[in-house]
Structures are given as structure tokens and as C-alpha cells.
Design a protein around this nucleic acid. Sequence first.
RNA 1: GCGCGCGUAGCUCAGUUGGAUAGAGCGUCGGCCUCCGGAGCCGAAGGUCGUGGGUUCGAAUCCCGCCGCGCGCACCA
Length: 543
Amino acid sequence: MNSAEVLRAELVRAARSLGASDGVEPVVERPRDEGHGDLATNLAMQLAKPLKKKPRDVADALLGVIDLPRAGATRAEIAGPGFINFWLDESLVANKLQDVIAANETFGRSDAGKNEKVNVEFVSANPTGPLHVGHGRQAALGDAIATLLEWTGWDVTREFYYNDAGAQIDNLAASVEARLNELKGEKAEIPEGGYHGEYIKELAERYAVNSEGLSVRDFAVRELRKEQDLDLQAFGVKFDKYYLESSLYTDGKVEETVDALVKSGMTYESEGALWLKTTEFGDDKDRVMRRSAERGGELTYFVPDVAYHVTKWKRGFHRAIDVQGADHHSTVTRVRAGLQSLKMGVPPQYPEYVLHQMVTVMKQGEEVKISKRAGSYVTVRDLINEVGRDAVRYFFIMRKSDSQLIFNVDLAASQSEENPVYYIQMAHARMCGIFRVGEVDRETFDSGRVDLTVLTEKEEQDLIKALVDFPAQLSSAAESLEPHRLTTYLHETARLAHLWYHKHHVLGQTAEITQARLALARGAEIVLRNGLTLLGITAPERM
RNA sequence: GCGCGCGUAGCUCAGUUGGAUAGAGCGUCGGCCUCCGGAGCCGAAGGUCGUGGGUUCGAAUCCCGCCGCGCGCACCA
């Protein structure tokens, strides 16, 4: 139990003894303003109405029945409209640092997920070209979310869904064909909606030299998948499962789903097409599942998508998270409507979606729109080559996914403290540096017998509190599926570490102080390292 | 036009799920200083949280209207 939980338990007991109902859930949090103590509760304000008393009177009464030592506090006072602020025993706070060091690389882990299975699907690019910056944001976001869930006790599967069956692939094949014709001296006629990038020409050239007995289509898909794999490798993202859309057709899963939907009674025929009543589930109009004969009679794209999500459910994932660009927003209602129509006991909010807004790449104050190879867009590879994997990862998750992201290439590439990645890595390297210069082995450093209560400087207390708060920050980031909370936290913690470092020397003090400060440096190093590695960013020992 | 998202310091953005005097970095201005690890450290100025209402003890946060930006609105994916 952490200090907040201890306090909350005591508050519940106190509230009951005042005659509050059993359902009280006092909010205990760390106040923004440190003048307001280490922890604060709004309990008195919550109880004011049911008890028909003024908040401050309730607070008074509560203080009368609260057992401070049992709550882990040394002092409490009523403030503002009726908050009760608590000051924790400083020695307790300092001793929390022991926990950080003892847990080391596992510090921050929790078991909220109870080892239940969750599927995180991200990137899911069509194999029609190199990955673009949007995919990059998705890769960084999805991978970070997956890791956050792992750290909070979920059994995570990272999954990539290849749309290798639809019209996009026809366009791809036709585009390569056009370039092949060009090689034969004919005029290249790239179809409408086709692909114009330089890489298409390269594909055609390679195919012309050695087709390996494959069709243009199969060859192109294979090569581009290989290329995307390399992009992901460069980015350090690993998937547990690649799911091919085409397999849904060959396994008959798509037709199964169509049949089941028809049987559910949620479909109807109109104008020669088959429709799904998505309006029953909040859509603004019903959607076509199967086009009429005169339009080709093919299934629309969201049908295999429904079939795909059925497999997720059947594969035992009772929680699924899809990370997608916000431009695919319209699929959300359709996929959910399909799953609901099937009445398989899938919750209405399944799958959960994390949608991200667009990425704008800026270089020297100007927007960069194209890359040489891809033509119409900037690739992930371009960015990685230019600023490095760490910076790309960090920059892609440092913003809330639902706000647009401006990727400042110059800042990401700079080796200065204005660059947040560099700033955090530098803080970590500094902590390591202390040990290096002091010739103390970090790994075997034993803080067990060190008296940490001598860490009474303001900067020390601030840093300790931040370090101890890491698991809570991590949990909240995981719960809300918002990795940016962690980057914000890490930046702030790095700031506190820099501040402390500049103000107080570790080496060359009395043995007592040096030992205690080494423990603090070790704790900071651990938290920064865990945070960075969790996000797929390296934590160098020197820079 | 309809749906979704966004609008917070000059700029880029946080804001602990409704809490106390709204924060950080960069930039600007004014001082220090070379240290275990380096164009560093300290301080100041800077805000009607797009706007107008509502909900309540309390709103940047929730609800409604309006303004601005982005995305989506096919028998495309």
C-alpha cells in the first residue's frame, strides 16, 4: 500500500464514524502547490451535502476522529473551502527511496491488468509503399501503449494487420505494370488512385530483371512488406503477430461473417446492394456491405474489418485497442455496429480506439511535404536517418494523440538541452557520471544501511517525491492510453534532477551525506532509465 | 451543411479525469558563474484558458449556442 492508499483507508474509517454512508470514496491527491502539504483530500466537501453541514465544520469533525499516525501523517490542517491537507512523515518519504532502489528495473510495474489478454493493433499499413510519418506516430504510440499495458500487468499482443486484399493492391499492381510498360518503351499510364513514387519504378526494374516466377502483384506486395519490415526494424518496433487480410478470405471468415450478419436480421437488400443497419448503432446512415452487381458485387472494406475483429474476440482478446489515424474515424461506428449485430457478447465499446491527428514535419521554419523515394509524402525512414530513432520516438509521443503534431526536425536533431530527449538523457547520464567519477559501482551500491533521512534539502525532497510518484504516473498513462503523460513526467523529473545536481554536490561531502546522495542519484537514474526504455528510447550512461 | 477532434503566456505545449493563487520549455528583460559533465545557474515580466450563457460549494476541465482551424462525410480504403 502506498501512502495515498493508507491515508484513504483511514479517511474512509473516519467518515463512517461520522455517519457517512458506506459508498464514500474520498479523493486523495498530491496538491499542485507544495504549501498545501504532501497529500490532500476533498472528503469534507463531498460530505457537506449528505451530512447537511458546512464543509469546514465537517473537516473539523473529521480531524477529531482521524488517527494521524495511522494515516502515515505528522500534521493536518484545514484549508481553502474545506480541503484537509496532510504532511507525511519525512522519514517515511525518504525511505520510499529504498523501495525504488530495491525494485530497480522493475520499479513502476504493477498488476492491475491481472495478466488478462489485450490486443494492441497499430501501424496496419497497406503494403503499397514505405511507411509515412503518420505510421511513425502510430508505431511510437502503439508500441508505447503496449509497453505501458505490459508494465501494468496485461498480457499484450502487438498486432499488425496487412490490408493486402483490397482495391489498393489492385492499384499497386497496375502502377507497377505501368512502369514495366515504360521500361519496354511504352508510355506509362499510372491508373487513377495509383502510386507515383520512385519506389514503384525500382520495383518494376527489379521485377524485369528477375520476377522469381511471381505475378507482378505478389512480387510487389512481398517486396513492400519486406521494406516496411525494415522500416519498423529501424524504428525498433516488434510485432507478435502479422495478420493478413487475404487470409480472412481464404479461410472463409469473411463469408462466414456476412452470413452471420444476414442471419442476425440486421441487414437488408436495397437497390441491388446488401446493407447493414449501422444507424441502429449511432451511424448517420446505413452502410453498404456488398455492392450491387452492376457495381462489381464486391464487399466493401469494412466487412473484412468486422470479420477480423471477430477473430480477435474469438482468439480470446476480451480487450482490443486499435491505434489509427483520425482520418479513419468513420470505421469506428461501422466495425462496432458489425460486432454488435452479431450478438456475440462483445461489449459495445469493443474495440477501443486511439485515434491520432495528422503530423506536420517542419524544417527551418518550413513544412516538408515530400521525400525523394515516396514522392508525395515524408517517410519514417527519412526522419530516423535525420534525427535518430530516440528523438523520433519521443517526439511522436510527446503530444496528446488527439492534437495535431508539429515535428520540428531541427529541434529533434539538436544536441542541446532545448531538445527534451537530449535533456532527459543528459539527466540520466549525469546521475551515472556521479558514480563513474566517484568510482562507485552503481549496480552493487547498497543503500540498505544508508540513512536517507539526511536528505532534507528542498531539491532533494522534491526529487524523491517525483521519483516515488513514478508508478502512479505510469498507471495513469496506461489507464488513459496516453503515453504523453509519461514524457511530460520524465521531463519534469529530469528537470528536478538537473536542479538538484547543480545545487548540491554528491561527492566530497561527509560520508553520511555522500552515501545518502548517491542513493538519490541511483534512484533518479533508475526512474529515468525505466521511463526511457519503456518508451523505446535508449538511456545512455554517457553522452 | 452534418459528424469527430482541437483552440491555454510572443512560440511549442502540459494541466493528476470537477479542486485551492492556471504550469513547463523556448523566446524577451535583469543579474551571477565555470562547477561531479560542457552556451551553464538564479530571478522577473508575460493570461478575460477562442467567445457568450448554463450546471454547483468550486469549471481550462461537464452541458448548450457562436467564431476559428484540422479531419471525415461514396455501392473508396
